[in-house]
């Protein structure tokens, strides 16, 4: 079993990623780390704890991390996409029984990376602020981690919060630029592939048919999420499986075809901050390459995800 930390800003598709990971025997979820992003870090921690309890995984510890970007202000959250509670309103004022551990998210990442050199999988599906902090906390972190799978960016396609920027990168461009150039062994799952892995609304009935509290909760939240997709892209008929695909790439790396290239992030532009640039066909400047996913076997992934998530 591959040891995995999920770094989340839970979030509806974060919830799907957590459920998918806990139901997959190939991976062992050793902890969930949280940060701001879709919602505040407090909400992300609450939601993560609640979802783990719904899944019967109270034993998976949760560690809270960054409450804001490295050097920017954060005042707007993605409530229009993920709901006021971050879970499409499905939470209905429920609260988790458990609470976050005392270590911070970056401390936990560093501790686990030291405990199992070369073995740890970190799946980052929020802004890259916790990762950046972990690298700063322990300079050897970069060489101790097995792999980092990041949901973020739009290397060859348009963005989803500005014309060229994807939300996780846009939330903390400085962190992303630092992490991509850090030498961490990164697989980048961007909108290039995640917008091709659509979950059709018609499949939600399968979750409701399953009849568990979790499966109903997930279906209700996802209905809200798909409503948001319909507002932005009328007729789309579903939602993208951004965060689950990042988990999927740990379970089975053949879901996506990757290409190795240095990726830079715009940190200065008024309209382009957070844009991810593939530095192809350019004179090498020593920047490390990362593996960028450019094609996905969407049908096979969707089938796998649906067979596991509830």
């Amino acid at each position: 079993m591959k040891p995995m930390i999920l770094d989340v800003d839970t979030g509806i598709d974060d919830m799907m990623a957590i459920a998918y990971a806990t139901h997959s025997p190939e991976v062992k979820l050793i902890g969930v780390t949280t940060l701001f992003g879709n919602v505040t870090v407090e909400e992300a921690t609450r939601n993560s704890l609640y979802v783990l309890e719904l899944l019967g995984c109270e034993d998976v510890p949760v560690y809270a991390g960054a409450d804001k970007p490295l050097s920017r202000n954060k005042d707007a959250y993605a409530k229009h996409v993920h709901g006021d509670d971050g879970l499409g309103g499905a939470l209905l004022d429920a609260l988790p029984k458990g609470r976050a551990e005392s270590l911070t998210a970056p401390q936990f990442m560093v501790e686990q990376a030291r405990r199992m050199p070369g073995q740890l999988n970190i799946v980052s599906v929020g802004p890259m602020t916790n990762l950046a902090a972990a690298i700063r906390l322990d300079p050897e972190f970069v060489s101790l981690v097995g792999q980092v799978v990041i949901m973020g960016g739009a290397v060859t396609v348009p963005g989803n919060v500005t014309p060229h920027a994807e939300a996780n990168i846009h939330s903390d461009p400085e962190a992303a630029e630092f992490v991509f150039g850090s030498g961490l062994p990164i697989k980048l799952i961007g909108l290039d592939v995640t917008m091709k892995t659509l979950l059709p609304r018609t499949r939600l009935q399968e979750w409701r048919d399953k009849g568990t509290k979790m499966s109903h909760f997930l279906a209700d939240a996802t209905d809200f999420y798909i409503d948001a997709y319909e507002r932005f892209s009328p007729g789309i008929g579903g939602c993208a499986l951004h965060d689950p695909l990042a988990v999927g790439m740990v379970i089975d790396p053949t879901f996506c075809r990757t290409e190795s290239m240095p990726v830079k992030v715009d940190t200065e532009g008024e309209h382009t901050a957070g844009q991810t640039y593939a530095d192809r066909n350019v004179v090498p400047d020593g920047r490390p390459s990362i593996d960028v996913c450019l094609e996905v076997d969407a049908e096979r992934f969707l089938a796998h995800f649906m067979s596991r998530v509830v």
Partner: peptide
Amino acid sequence: KGEFSYGMTVVDML
């Protein structure tokens, strides 16, 4: 302002 994107027409296709 952008280092890489100065002079770009940022077209909001979506």
